[in-house]
Design a protein around this nucleic acid. Sequence first.
DNA 1: AACACCGCCTGAGCGC
DNA 2: TGCGCTCAGGCGGTGT
Length: 316
Amino acid sequence: MPELPEVETVRRTLESRILGARVDRAAVRRRDVIEGPATARALLEGDEVASLRRRGKQLAILGSSGRVALVHLGMTGSLVASDAEPPADDPHVHAVWKLRTTSGAAVWMRFRDPRRFGGLWTLRSPGALEQRWKDLGPDGLDITGPDLVNALGPSKRPVKAALLDQRAVAGVGNIYADEALFLAGIHPARRCRTLRADEWARLSDALRGVLLASIQQGGTTFRDFVDGEGRGGGYQARRLVYGRGAEPCLACSGRLRSVTIGGRTTVYCPTCQPSRRSSKPVIHRPFTVGGELGVVIRPDLGLPRVNEVAGSLTHR
DNA sequence: AACACCGCCTGAGCGC
DNA sequence: TGCGCTCAGGCGGTGT
């Protein structure tokens, strides 16, 4: 499920392969996944790949002419570069590029998306890209407590539902919303307006931390996700709550609960994430020690420690 | 204006 | 073995 860490992983793996490469051919196999002109030229044929940029879950490939191919992977989308041409009979490959790298090697890149929740946009210029991105909130890797207060402070929505709003923070999906709320010790159904500044700060720390930690593992592969080289990620082994409904909490050993909030499956620990603020400290909740968050998780299980997550935060 | 909710789409997983 | 059902969810559109 490509969220920010997965898309960033794709961006990095593709960048190492196709940056500077010339697009010899661009071919559309399924027109209705593309918005904007679906011509070879609009899909960067004749251009060199000038840069790959990401905002939230969206990945932009900028060409030397200024044209932009913008990709959203949706639920099941993948963008993979390889030495081989993708099979012509794969009904889920919607666009194919043939590139030549600076060293002269041929590389095939294909956009594949069985469920077609994703898509491809062709844009004329970097300015058009900025225009498309202007409605997105700050990128999840940059999010701060004040950003969240600013976007969501007065909202009556459950905080879990609000975190999925890309106008508030770009790049967070169901997996990392649940993970971050657990790390921050915040109940997912709490209304935004009941959160205090210190809780928003803790939540923004948890979000940046979990997103960064996942990027370091190459993202989360639950079913479909693969990076730009076709490899799966490793963060699924470090999940704390997502997909673990009714299993024991890794912090307190209580039973995790699975509910629906904002139409999304939501897993949380009723003990570690109390539904109202309590003056009683929860011992395994993230806490600050010498400027770093404390350890929450049982290291014997090989799962992430919050201070490991925070380690990557402190040098931001 | 803010928020809730539907429908798009396919494949995996499950019960029988 | 195979069939049919449910579920997964990002996001845009529509309804309240």
